[in-house]
Every structure is written in structure tokens, then in C-alpha cells.
Amino acid sequence: MQTDLELVNKARLGSGAAFKELVRQHQQIVYNLAYDLTGSREDAQDLSQDVFIRAFERLDSFRGESRFSSWLYRITMNMWMNNKKRKNFQVLKMSDSLESFSDNTGKSYQPNYPDNPEVKADMAMINDHITRAMTVLSAKEKSVFVLRQFHDQGLDEIANILGISLGTVKSTLFRSLKKMQKQLSFLQSH
């Protein structure tokens, strides 16, 4: 199996297959991050497509000093910030967590929660609480929080992706967790 850097080098030389392989290997993490940031399936699809187009255009600037996934994370964060400024991203879309949605083909389907209705309802409820609570976070807090909590990135890696110091990552994460607790405190006693 080829490494990311080998694939990038081939793609730079004009190999479409290599670039496709890079997309195939990373499209899930990019889409997931885009979904966590935008809270909407439709926006996440648009954002992740924009990210790969941008990555395609800027492939020459990837020097292999960081992981390719970190580089993509950084592009995603930047593009999300730009989009956030340009238009009012619909941060909270209940339809994605509780209702069915349909794709471009018009085919309607349900989120793939377990069959047990109680478990399904619980999971949807938890997601709903978390998504709502996240709306109080600033863009920077949300970036750090999402990378740590949902993408399991180490503190050093987050500092590298966002271009901020380790101390800032820690204080931002501390602040965001406190804010989240405040929003979710009504569940703490249950």
C-alpha cells in the first residue's frame, strides 16, 4: 500500500488515479469534520467537495511536514471559517438528527441508528442535546472541541492543525468543556 506522500507525489506529476486514491482514503474524515462543524448533511457535502477541490489546486504546497490528514483538516477549518462569514450557515438542523432526509436522487432514507426504537430515540436525543449545546461555542472553541472530542486528535496535533500554541489549545478546550457542561447541566443529575 502506498503512503500519502507517495500518492501526493504521483498526483503532482499528473496521476489522476493517485489523487482519486487520496480522496477515497480521506473523504470520510473530511466529510465527518465538515458535518460536525456545519451540523448539516447538505452543507457538509458541499464543504467537503470544496475542500478536495482546494486541496487539488494547492497540492504543490503540501510539503509532507505534517500528515496529509492534518493538512486536509486545516483546509476544512479555513474553508468553514470563510463560508461561515459569507453566508449564514444553518448550524442546527434538526432534520438530520431526528427526521428522515433525502439525497439528490430523491431517495429518502433514515439515519442508520440501531433497530431498537428506545436506543434509537436515546441516541437521537443525545445528539440533539450535544448539537444544541455546541451553538454557544465560539468558532475557535468549536474547532478545538470538535477535533478533540469527535476526531480524537491529540493536543499537539490540534495545535499544529490550527496553528496555535499548546497552551491555547488547553485553555480553549477547558473553556469549551465548561461551556458545554453549563448547557448540559440539566442532564447531570439524571
Binding site: 465527518n32 458535518y35 438528527s97 442508520n112 441508528y113 441516541m123 450535544i130 472541541f145 448540559l184 442532564l187
Partner: peptide, 10 residues
């Protein structure tokens, strides 16, 4: 609590 977050599967 936030570790329980899941995304709708595709």
C-alpha cells in the same frame, strides 16, 4: 457525555 455523540450513518 459528549463522547456519546454519533453521526447519522450514510
Amino acid at each position: 457525555f459528549t463522547r456519546n455523540y454519533t453521526r447519522p450513518a450514510v
